[in-house]
């Protein structure tokens, strides 16, 4: 088989990879903000939930989380009489988001805490509520700080999507494996797959750079 014939199935797989990456990065970012802000909350219950979530998902294997959501959760659900069967896409996106969200939460927390004390004092002197201080003063300054580590996490997430091929999602890694089984042309197929992941990573990096520039457009040297 000519290598160009691999391109169509691999591109189909790449689309699944792209979708998984987008959904889980966006959903993971929301989780990261919720848990990162939650970890700084005054309410001890919210803090405990955030810390519990972060530690559990940082401290366990992504692959096992994925298998747990896809294989174990339905069985556990059956035992208590609830249908908890997840379609592969949902299980994949959920596992990836929960994972990136836990890592991202630490990024969010760190960036919020890096906003200078002077800013909080100015906000207090102007009588901002704690909530408005967070949304109007702290977060707009913290978000640009989060962008480089978020970029790393997004790339990490792109590469981690390959794991979902193990729960029968036909992403790029799955298609590559399928083609290899069929043709035994390992070198060509995996080289193409590597190049495709690398290309996607480059695009993602460029997008994160643009986003970083946009959220930090007020900064010195930004324009």
């Amino acid at each position: 088989m000519d290598w160009t014939q691999y391109l169509t199935p691999l591109t189909l797989g790449a689309w699944v990879t792209i979708e998984l990456t987008i959904y889980s990065t966006v959903f993971g970012a929301l989780l990261a903000f919720a848990a990162g802000i939650g970890k700084l909350a005054h309410n001890p219950l919210i803090r405990a939930i955030s810390i519990g979530y972060i530690e559990i998902f940082r401290g366990t294997s992504l692959l096992v989380q994925l298998f747990w959501l896809y294989f174990a959760l339905p069985v556990a659900g059956q035992a208590i009489g609830i249908d908890l069967r997840l379609p592969p896409v949902a299980a994949g996106v959920l596992a990836l988001s929960l994972n990136i969200g836990a890592y991202g939460a630490e990024v969010v927390r760190g960036a919020i805490q890096s906003v200078s004390k002077d800013q909080y004092e100015a906000a207090r002197a102007l009588n901002f509520t704690p909530r408005k201080t967070l949304w109007r003063v702290a977060l707009p300054q913290a978000i640009p700080e989060m962008m480089p580590p978020f970029g790393n996490l997004a790339i990490q997430n792109l590469k981690d999507t390959a794991l979902v091929s193990l729960i029968s999602l036909s992403d790029l890694a799955f298609r590559a494996e399928q083609l290899r089984n069929f043709t035994q042309d390992s070198t060509t197929i995996y080289t193409l797959a590597l190049l495709m992941y690398f290309g996607l990573a480059l695009v993602l990096t460029a997008m994160m750079k643009l986003l970083e520039r946009f959220v930090g457009r007020w900064r010195a040297g930004a324009r």
Binding site: D118, A122, Q141, W218
Partner: peptide
């Protein structure tokens, strides 16, 4: 919060909101 409405402060390091 109520008492603070009577007061305003100018800081040594200005503490303007950079964004």
């Amino acid at each position: 919060r109520k008492m603070r409405t009577q007061l305003g402060m100018v800081f040594q390091q200005f503490n303007l909101f950079p964004h």
